[in-house]
């Protein structure tokens, strides 16, 4: 590849080489064969960890949406799901701390992912402005999507933390009436509405970018695959936003209907779910 240097037509002794206008990661004098220091393996591990934590959270998000949307089937269905996670099937009676443990794990991964992702944020006003102008000038779809991913991620620092902290400290208050009261009487619905949009958009973009980043599903025609991934991303967003909105509406309706008895715990109408049977 010496040709690529020669074809620049530049003399070999340009004074400001090796990296014009840029800070090289390693001084060239240190990169000569035999003189190079072994580079840390941590950047590789952190990069992988960011992806793995993101994948874990996205998969949890999918499962979580199906769990909470069981309210659309019936109050008993959601009650059964909620009690299932209290592991009465294991301990003989409901143990809300089990939910706290699960939430604690998710919260830990959430914080870890946020910390890792922050490395990619613009680190100064100059970087922010440069990227913002670049995005506006280039009008490139994936560059624009990353900007959305950035801001939805930023919003999740706060929205997600509030939700997770509530579930962590009050695991026993997950149930048809309990959740509906929290959403309506506890005025959490605006936060959940914002959280829904932020998390679903961020999650779908994250999964899409994850596939591109690691070359998953590339196949013989990566360009075609990328188009299909974009369609899948949009379908993911639309489906889970739709499901989430309908589910949130169901909780709001239930909360309004139950506002007079807010605070009253739900008692299942059918004695047959796991928690009661045990």
């Amino acid at each position: 590849m010496t040709g690529s240097i020669e074809q620049t037509g530049l003399p070999a002794d340009i004074p400001d080489l090796p990296a014009p206008g840029r800070a090289a990661a390693i001084p060239v004098s240190a990169t000569r064969a035999g003189a190079r220091l072994r580079k840390s393996r941590w950047p590789a591990r952190l990069d992988l960890l960011q992806s793995v934590s993101g994948l874990f959270l996205a998969l949890f998000l999918v499962a979580h949406m199906f769990f909470v949307s069981s309210i659309l089937i019936s109050k008993d269905a959601f009650h059964t799901v909620a009690r299932f996670f209290e592991a009465a099937w294991l301990f003989g009676k409901p143990q809300p701390w089990v939910v706290s443990v699960v939430v604690g794990v998710v919260f830990t991964v959430f914080v870890l992912h946020a910390w890792l992702a922050m490395r990619k944020f613009p680190a100064s006003f100059r970087q922010y402005r440069v990227f913002s102008e670049h995005k506006a000038q280039l009008r490139h779809s994936d560059t624009g999507l990353w900007w959305i991913q950035l801001w939805t991620g930023f919003a999740l620092f706060f929205l997600g933390s509030v939700h997770l902290y509530g579930m962590l400290t009050q695991p026993e208050l997950i149930g048809p009436y309990e959740s509906a009261d929290r959403i309506w009487t506890g005025t959490m619905w605006p936060l959940y509405l914002l959280l829904l949009f932020a998390v679903e958009i961020h999650g779908s973009l994250g999964l899409y970018r994850l596939a591109l980043k690691w070359g998953a599903f590339e196949g013989r025609d990566p360009v075609h695959t990328r188009r299909r991934l974009r369609v899948a991303k949009t379908c993911f967003s639309v489906f889970f936003l739709g499901l989430g909105l309908v589910t949130l509406l169901a909780y709001v309706q239930l909360g309004i209907a139950h506002a007079d008895q807010a605070g009253q715990r739900y008692a299942p109408s059918v004695v047959g779910n796991v928690a009661v049977r045990n």
Binding site: A25, I26, S40, K120, H140, P222
Partner: peptide
């Protein structure tokens, strides 16, 4: 040792502007 950090391959955020504007159609994404 040349590209194993955030100034190298781990710094790429997979925005793929590079791939989409390359006039030679190089397979940069893959």
């Amino acid at each position: 040792d040349l590209i194993g950090d955030d100034t190298g391959v781990f710094g790429c955020m997979s925005l793929l502007g590079c791939h989409d504007v390359c006039p030679k159609g190089l397979p940069l994404q893959t």
